[in-house]
């Protein structure tokens, strides 16, 4: 049996390699009974289309991220809140403990089930000036992904959120169509944004993981042994991915500093946290499920 897995990264991307790792492990663990065929570069559709196809069983598996998944399952919204995680370890802890597992399982009735989280580091602001505090962001046009939580966060920090397509961002930064953007340090090198933005201000506002999912109907067609193999492979690939990502991220920071001359700015996070804290309450007020998750995530930090 071969499952089709669709995602939108190129084949040399660490996410692709981690999914490949998972596919290899599944094949090993099931002695070749179960295979995963990976389609890179969104060959079978965009992230949203993949979700809709999984709901109908037309597609077996897909990778998306928590930000996009919020539109399909509210639980993922808890992971997208700024400063919900106090450290990288807290973050990984939540993803690998029962809180993470509950979120992955929460969407079963929506037609898909989460299998693994792949971390993508912390996102921070970068621009052609250092951003030490929310006051520095005032009036700046900051490129955001078109998600309400990203828009709300940038608004609360005093900047003007500007949705720009990812592919257009480089020239938008270069021409000053936007004054800055927010992403993990890898964007500085892989998308060459370090060439046009010389200050990376390490405020680390959000940590938004990628998620590998399987369609509920494909999942139900698996035998118990196959399900077990999938779970094991998924969990192992998460650790494999974390190592890979951290190494790549460190390398990106080095390259950005030495070759592109990007300055990394240490930031006092307190004022940022204070400014966006209302989002936690807003999210909790909107949904009891998310409220409960927020409480549990915060409790896990202690």
């Amino acid at each position: 049996k071969t499952l089709r897995l669709n995602h939108n990264n190129p084949e040399d991307h660490p996410l692709h390699k981690s999914m490949q790792f998972m596919a290899e492990r599944v094949e090993e663990l099931t002695d070749g009974d179960l295979k995963i065929r990976i389609y890179a570069n969104a060959q079978l559709g965009t992230q949203r289309e993949s979700m809709e196809l999984m709901q109908n069983g037309s597609l077996d598996m897909a990778r998306s991220n928590a930000s996009e998944l919020e539109a399909f399952e509210e639980s993922y919204g808890a992971l997208n809140l700024p400063y919900i995680f106090v450290s990288a370890d807290h973050y990984y802890d939540v993803l690998t403990n029962d809180i993470g597992a509950d979120i992955l399982a929460s969407s079963e009735d929506k037609g898909f089930i989460g299998l693994a989280y792949y971390i993508e580091g912390a996102r921070s602001f970068y621009a052609n000036k250092a951003i030490h505090s929310p006051a520095d962001l005032k009036g700046m046009k900051i490129r955001v992904q078109p998600s309400p939580s990203a828009i709300r966060m940038v608004e609360l920090l005093g900047a003007n959120p500007t949705p720009i397509a990812w592919g257009e961002l480089y020239s938008a930064l270069q021409q000053g169509v936007v004054d800055g953007a927010e992403n993990n340090p890898i964007a500085l090198t892989s998308a060459r944004h370090g060439e046009v933005s010389k200050f990376y201000s390490d405020d680390g506002h959000t940590m938004i993981p990628s998620v590998v999912m399987i369609s509920t109907s494909s999942w139900n067609d698996l035998t118990d042994e196959q399900k077990e193999a999938m779970r094991t492979a998924a969990r192992e690939s998460m650790d494999f991915h974390r190592e890979q990502w951290d190494a790549m991220s460190a390398e990106a920071v080095e390259t950005a500093k030495s070759e592109l001359g990007v300055e990394f700015v240490e930031v006092e996070k307190g004022p940022f946290i204070e400014a966006v804290l209302p989002m936690h309450e807003e999210a909790a007020a909107k949904s009891p499920v998310v409220a409960d998750l927020i409480k549990r995530i915060k409790a896990a930090a202690q």
Partner: peptide, 17 residues
């Protein structure tokens, strides 16, 4: 089928909800 399924699962668009 597509319409009813997306309505059923309450899928919303990212920006306009």
């Amino acid at each position: 089928d597509l319409v009813s399924r997306t309505l059923e699962t309450q899928q919303v668009s990212p920006a306009l909800r």
